[in-house]
Each structure stands twice: as structure tokens, then as C-alpha cells.
């Protein structure tokens, strides 16, 4: 029930935003993430953005996983 999915903010109007989720447009509330900007990905839970996703951290994690995969292959 704590399901939350990434959604891309397209437009902001006051405390609401229009987001895109896999090609579908939805209106959501920004009451919990007032600092969200157009172009941000947010975690969407029951119509509310509960957090802004951090692009840099995501890339960092993937880089680390890539290194693990390469190391595993070498040790293979």
C-alpha cells in the first residue's frame, strides 16, 4: 500500500501539477513537495508527490552497480 511510482512534472499550477507516468497524464498534489519544479521526477503516492527523486544519486548507484558487475565478470 506504500506503493509510489516515478512521475515526471510537466506543468505546475499553484499546489497542483500535471505529471506524466508512462505516457499517461495525471493531476497530482504538491502539498508535500512544494519545492518541486517542472522537469523533476517525483515519487507519486495516492495522488501526492511524497518526494523528489534525486537524479545524481540514481546515476551514482547505477555506476556503482556497473562496477560490481564488471568486478564479478573478472572474477567470474
Amino acid at each position: 500500500m506504500c506503493l509510489a511510482i516515478p512521475a515526471l512534472i510537466k506543468r505546475i499550477e499553484d499546489k497542483e501539477a500535471e505529471v506524466e507516468i508512462g505516457g499517461i497524464t495525471r493531476r497530482i498534489s504538491l502539498w508535500l513537495t512544494p519545492e518541486a519544479k517542472v522537469g523533476d521526477y517525483v515519487l507519486l503516492h495516492t495522488g501526492y508527490a511524497i518526494n523528489i527523486l534525486d537524479q545524481e544519486e540514481a546515476e551514482e548507484t547505477l555506476k556503482l552497480l556497473q562496477e560490481v558487475a564488471e568486478a564479478a565478470e573478472e572474477k567470474g
Binding site: I5, P6, Y41, L53, Q55, A58, E59, L62, L65, Q66, V68, A69, E70, A71, A72, E73, K75, G76
Partner: peptide, 20 residues
């Protein structure tokens, strides 16, 4: 970055599984 499919890549999973 779409924040979904990137975190389902099987070659990265294999590396982690080997490390575990």
C-alpha cells in the same frame, strides 16, 4: 533516466548476486 527500467537490468543483478 526514467527511474524504473534502469533498476531492473539483469546483467547488473548478476554482478550483485555473485558478490553476495
Amino acid at each position: 533516466m526514467k527511474f524504473i527500467t534502469e533498476f531492473r537490468r539483469s546483467e547488473l543483478a548478476e554482478g550483485l548476486i555473485a558478490q553476495i
